[in-house]
Amino acid sequence: MQEWRRRLACGVALFFIPWVTSARSEIRVALVDGQIEIAGLTTEAMDAMEAGATRVRVSVGPDAPAILGEYRVAGGRLYFQPMFPFDPGREYIVRVDGGGEPFFATVALPARDLVPTTIVEHIYPSTDTLPENQLKFYIHFSAPMAGGDGLVFVKLLDDNGEQVIDPFLPLGNAFWGRNHRRYTVFFDPGRVKRGILPNEEMGRPILEGRRYVLVVDPTWRDAEGQPLAEPFRKEFIAGPPDETPIDPKMWTLISPRAETREPLTVDFPEPLDRAVLARTLAVENVDGEIEISRDETRWSLIPEKPWQAGTYHLIALTILEDLAGNQIGKPFEVDVFTRVDSPDDVTDTHRVPFVVRD
């Protein structure tokens, strides 16, 4: 028999074949190599495909639209190739009409093994001692997460195991990173900053000397709709409040040697905000790879090309922050709606010279 095929058009996935079999039970339907195979039709039926006496329809349900695709006849069998691949785990209904009662069959590909794999990789700050006026946490995931309000999956427990009431800024949809692998949890700035009504009425969310646990609920779903593979807890103790502006004079620069790709290393006397640090410190006219380590108290730049002897400048945007939101030269004042990874409109800088010697 000559092989032929027809493309289904106009959104109607119906193909018509007159069929005669010695017994209806001899019609066999299977899903093979991503296509539906129908066997058991007589030679006469296969030769008369265009007569229209028999109708075959593929769908995901009795009332669902027919699936678009292509069919062909080969080796005495009818094959249906969908325009888009069949979904693993989903059942498809094949209906054959040729006079009398219709014939139905259900086919499906094996379901994927949907084992949750996404985890919380890290919560910043890394240190386990945070200032009483701590401003925010960054939750980093191993894969993109679903959008929406993440605060429903985060809670803060005190050293009695009690949940801290309303510690966070209730704008949970606003603080996703661009790739949905980082979520920022802000403490309510009105409770953190002194002299503001929420602070006076409720006090700070965390208090010096007490221990806390930030808990991430594993029911938080990733972009594939799967829950987290495991819960995550970050334990920390609250230290004294930090209300001192950042002073670059307190930084220690360790200069590299000329004609090497040794890193320039900058050590800070306190942990700094990791996301802001990654975007606000650079060496003028030098490209390279940035590393942040030692609980966010060290910043390093490994240059793409060997250093040349001479004077260089470390450039710091003045919006650089410590854990309490204090910036270079000024204490905490924050617009929480400014993206931490988009300081493009900031032009105020602080320059720190250093020398590379032979």
Rank of each mutant, 00 (worst) to 15 (best):
P170F: 05
V58P: 05
R211N: 05
L14D: 15
D87N: 02
T265Y: 03
T280V: 07
G203Q: 07
D295G: 14
M46G: 14
L68A: 15
T297A: 00
E289L: 14
P241M: 09
T338F: 06
M1K: 10
S255R: 10
A74N: 11
A223L: 02
P271T: 03
V185E: 08
T184Q: 14
T117P: 01
F168W: 13
D63E: 07
I67N: 01
R90C: 10
A278E: 11
I290P: 08
G310Q: 09
S22P: 00
R257L: 12
I36W: 10
P343M: 06
P248M: 06
D33Y: 13
A23I: 05
L68I: 07
P65Y: 03
I254F: 10
L68H: 10
A51M: 12
A146N: 09
I123P: 04
K234C: 00
T252V: 12
V213Q: 14
L78G: 03
R77E: 05
V29Y: 03
P102S: 02
I93H: 04
P218E: 08
G239R: 01
D63C: 00
R90V: 15
F175G: 09
F175E: 05
I93G: 00
G99K: 02
V12W: 12
V334H: 05
W176N: 02
D128Y: 07
D33T: 12
R211S: 11
P82V: 01
H180M: 15
A23F: 08
G69Q: 03
D63T: 06
A66L: 10
P198S: 00
Y183Q: 01
L207S: 09
R55A: 15
I123T: 06
E208W: 00
G172C: 00
A309M: 13
T106L: 08
F15P: 02
L130T: 06
E200Q: 11
R7C: 03
G161C: 07
A229Y: 01
P18V: 04
E200Y: 10
A111R: 14
D149Q: 09
W176L: 06
P303V: 05
L151E: 12
K249H: 13
D348G: 13
N173H: 15
G148M: 06
P65T: 04
R274G: 05
D295L: 10
I123L: 14
S293V: 13
N173P: 00
A324L: 11
R210G: 00
A45F: 06
R5K: 12
E3M: 05
G310M: 11
T311H: 11
Q163H: 02
S255P: 10
L41F: 15
I315G: 04
L264E: 06
R204P: 03
P144G: 09
P263Q: 02
M250F: 01
S59G: 07
F141D: 08
V20W: 14
D242W: 01
G69R: 01
V340Y: 10
V192P: 03
Y312M: 09
